[in-house]
Write a protein that binds this DNA or RNA. Structure first.
Lengths: 334, 334
DNA sequence: CCTCCAATCTGCAACGATGTATTCAACGCA
DNA sequence: TGCGTTGAATACATCGTTGCAGATTGGAGG
């Protein structure tokens, strides 16, 4: 059916192996021979069979990316950045949605998905560090700094704590004193939610404001979660003058609910988020948030994973680069 | 390294081919034999090597999805739906971003990307029908009804024209008479932009409102495109009492710009979009828009492509199912 | 002129599965 | 008893590459 190396070899009058050598840029090939082969390739429109190559070489040149759902803007944007960065280094990315289910995450760590790829980017949401270490195979794995932080695993870290503190400090700086936190449980200390909550508490303490657990509202990390959390907060009668959504969609859901109910943002209530998704800039009012350095995260993760895959240096030390964050002050909390 | 069929065969005391037969559910296998093999598989933790299987069988069980950029919410949501539907039928989806470049699109249609997949979903933005037919190989291809509509190609259609007419009619019904259209050029007749513009004109005509080319503002199909289009529209001095963004992000960008400039929506200007992305429901004010039936599109596209791949029926007739649209009336244009 | 080495090219096996054809045993039936 | 038929398992070739070892060629050096 398709043109194979054999066809090219015959057309160029050389051996199959020489064609292979030309394609793989083997050093010792006479320019004239190379020329002949390249011409035959062009003429026949030959394209290497990647499946055969993978079988023989054991490399697929694909990287896996496990995330909960592409319809979540932050993940979609991150995936886009990762795919671009990987493409620049000659790799494709195969995305797998875990739907936030431990079973799906585990399956992606070890099953067929793993075999299809040379290495894995993983945004764990349901599994913890121990689970991951237990389930993961031997191929390179890079976590993306969302929920799990574990010293035994390669990962790109988000400065969850410091960034959350910066947002909180900004709200405090504008005179807010009753800042509700949406998306965490009082007492959380691990995961993005826990770390961001800690950052929030640190900032309160540093500014001499007392921590009130009644202001910490757990909710799903989606728009409707944020909206519903605001409803509960209002129903509870607890006073507040600012809302810090632990990610942007929660903050945007909250913002929407506040406006629907006739509150003025930022006059009555200031709103801030975390992630700096594209949408934040165009919300009305535009959303104050913190950028975790998405593009940098993607680039560092890709470089780290591909270096592992290609075994450059072979050093076994865990690497955990940390991306720079940046506060984005907009209308919702000037 | 990894466990192969051979290892399983040895452990079970049968031939390699028998193991293969068990795995492929070959009909004539004694239950006792099957049992032995399955036990050996479980014990050794054998997993089939998909690369080898692909090489031999010529099938990869992967489908390609070519779109411009995952950071565009509509595409991310569609990709998510497609991946879920494909997964239900045992296929994975490999996404390729074309960045809206003809060269990238062409490459995805014929190059290595094509070889990696059994069939392709394609959302063309830069290429036209002729280009696609010229570039596409022999493997199944299903277009997703955005820009190109071509009777020679399998595709799932969006009811661009009727849905746009429905939005326009709704705006007219609420008393608006000067409806600006963002995202098309006066005279466009092809592509989503053209078809939606035609729908708009039909609705105007049906309601006895004259078409004014000055109200048609071309712009990039992104948030900042919509925002900037509103700026141009205002600068032009042309009067308008409603804005119809030809997709949701354009409409949301426009909405943002209007609010920033102190206009009241919907009192001064009504705003409507097209796509019904998740964000539309939570915008402030929430966005009136039309749902093109994203989940249905994904499901139909997956069914169509997989049926083609698996050659069920082998009928050569082009198929072009049409998804149902639905108007979503919200605050921005009640 | 012969040896030796580097540059260049080639042949064969192998990656791990599946398709085809074949073998072998057991069974029913004349 | 002998023969055809069917169920069950196997042997071998094959998919299109790349790794490895070996063959060939053309000077440089003695």
């Amino acid at each position: 059916m398709a043109v194979t190396m054999n066809d090219v070899a015959r057309a160029a009058g050389v051996s199959l192996k020489t064609v292979s050598n030309v394609i793989n840029n083997y050093e010792f090939i006479r320019p004239a021979t190379k020329q002949k082969v390249l011409e035959a390739i062009a003429e026949l429109g030959y394209e290497a069979n990647l499946t055969a190559r993978s079988l023989r070489s054991g490399k697929t040149n694909m990287l896996g990316l496990v995330l909960s759902d592409l319809s979540v803007p932050y993940y979609a944007e991150l995936a886009s950045d990762i795919m671009k960065a990987a493409s620049n280094r000659g790799y494709r990315v195969l995305v797998e949605q875990s739907a936030n289910q431990a079973e799906h995450e585990r399956a992606a760590l070890q099953g067929q998905f793993r075999n299809l790829t040379d290495g894995l980017f993983f945004i764990p949401l349901a599994l913890g560090g121990d689970d991951i270490i237990a389930a993961a195979g031997k191929k390179p794995l890079v976590l993306l700094g969302e929920f799990v932080e574990d010293p035994r695993l390669d990962m790109v870290l988000i400065q969850n704590q410091d960034a959350a503190a910066a947002v909180t400090a900004h709200l405090l700086g504008s005179g807010r004193r009753r800042i509700a936190v949406l998306g965490a449980n009082d007492g959380d200390t691990t995961g993005s939610n826990g770390l961001r909550l800690i950052g929030y508490r640190h900032a309160l303490k540093a500014n001499g404001v007392e921590y009130d657990p009644a202001l910490v509202i757990p909710c799903g990390w989606r728009r409707d979660g944020g909206a519903e959390a605001v409803s509960r907060l209002l129903a509870s009668g607890v006073e507040f003058d600012a809302v810090f959504g632990l990610n942007d969609v929660v903050a945007l859901g909250a913002l929407h609910e506040l406006l629907v109910r006739g509150y003025s943002v930022p006059d009555d209530v200031a709103v801030a988020g975390f992630d700096d998704i594209d949408e934040a800039r165009f919300a009305s009012p535009s959303l104050t948030t913190v950028s975790p350095g998405r593009t940098e995260i993607a680039q560092r993760a890709v470089d780290l994973l591909i270096d592992r895959v290609e075994g450059k240096g072979e050093r076994a030390d865990v690497e955990q680069p940390r991306a720079e964050y940046a506060l984005r002050i907009r209308q919702s909390a000037p």
